[in-house]
Write a protein that binds this DNA or RNA. Sequence first.
DNA 1: TCTGGGGTCCTAGGACCC
DNA 2: TCTGGGGTCCTAGGACCC
Length: 387
Amino acid sequence: MHVDLDAFYAAIEQRDHPPWRGLPVVVGAAPGTRGVVATCSYEARRYGVRSAMPIAEAVRRLPPETVYLRPRMGDYAAVSRQVMAALGDISPVVEKVSIDEAFLDLSGLAGLIGPPAAIGALTKAAIRAAVGLSASVGIGPNRLIAKLASEHRKPDGLTVVHPEQVQTFLDPLPFRVLRGVGAKTSARLDGAGVKTVADVRRLPLVELRRLLGARVGAEVHLQARGIADDRVDPARERKSISKETTFPEDVADVAVLRDAVLWAAQEVGFLARQEGRAGVVVTLKIRLRPFETHTRSRTLAVPTASDGEIFRAAWSLFDVHRWAGRSVRLIGVGLSGWAGRQGSQPDLLDAAVEPTSPRSRRLDETLDAVRRRFGDGALQRGLRPRR
DNA sequence: TCTGGGGTCCTAGGACCC
DNA sequence: TCTGGGGTCCTAGGACCC
C-alpha cells in the first residue's frame, strides 16, 4: 500500500489558517526571487501551477488573492511524524519514503482488518483523525502498482488494483507515469511514437534497450508488464547529508563563496553529529552561470562529523583555476560514506582487541572491508590508508 | 518559463590489486 | 617485447524523484 498526503505543505497551512481555505495557496520561494513552487493547494493547481514551477511563472498565472508562503519545515516534519505514527498502528512494516509518503506492507493484515479496501479506508480515517488531513491511498501487488494506484485518484482517493487487474489498469496510462521515466527518457519514447504503457509493451525488449540504454530499457520493459519490487524496508537509512544555497544574485567574490561553504559545512556537521553519523566522503557542489553544475569529492582517511574537517576538505576542492572569477549561482557541501554498517568506530576497535570473542558475521565483513581498504595493521595503527 | 533543496541510483573510466 | 582477467574503489556526471 502507498500513502500520499494531498498537497501536504499547503494543506497544513490551510488547516492551520481557516481564512486561507478555498484560496490558492503557494508554499515555496518568495515572489520576486529566483526560486520555485514547493507545493500548492488544489485551488492553485486549477491555474496550471505545479511543484517545481518557477515562482515568477506561478505569480503570472495566479489571481491577486493568492496566498504566498515560505515553508515551515519544522512544523511539516512534526506533522509527518504524527502521520507515520498513525501508519505504524495499521501495519508494523512502514517505509517512509519522503516527508509526505510511505509504503506499508499489508501481508497478513487481511485476517486482522479485512479486505484491502477496508484497510485503505481505515488508513485514511486514521490519518484524518491524527492530523486532520486527507491522503490518497493505493493498494497493489508491488510498489509500482501501489504508487500508480495512489496517483490514480487525487485528492482523497482510494484505489485498489488486484493482481489480475494490473495489466488492464496499466495499459491505458501515459508511459510517463512509469518510475524513472523523466524528461530525457520521455523525449526518446515520444520519438518512437509511443504514447501509452500498452505501446511500450508492444516494443521488443531489444528495441527498448537500444532506445533507452540497457538498464533503463530493461526496467521500463518490466514495469510495462507490472513487474516491480514488492519489498517494504522500514530500516532504510539515509546515505548522505547535504546543504546548499542558491545566491539571490550570482557571486564572483571568493571570500563570499568561502563563507557560504563554511556555513554549509557547519550545517552538515551539525546534522551528522545530531544523527550520530560520520562520513569519509566530502563533496563540494557548485553551479555556475548559466546553470552549469560541477561536483568535486574527496575521500578522507578517517570518518568525520567535524565542521572544521568538513570545511577544510570541501574548500580544498574549490577549483581556483577553473572557477575563481566566474559567476557562481549555487554552492553546497555534502557528506556521505558512513563508516562500516553502523558507523561505529569503537565497535571496530573493540572487536580488534578481542579477536576471539564471538562476533556477528556483519561485523566480520566490516572488519574485512576495513583491512582490505586500509591494510592489515590498520585497526591497530588507527586507520591510516595504505600508501 | 528559466529553472530550490534534499535526496537516490546508475554509469563509466582509471587506478590498483591479486 | 607484448601483454590476462576479474574485482573493487574512487571520482564526475547525469537522470530522476518528492
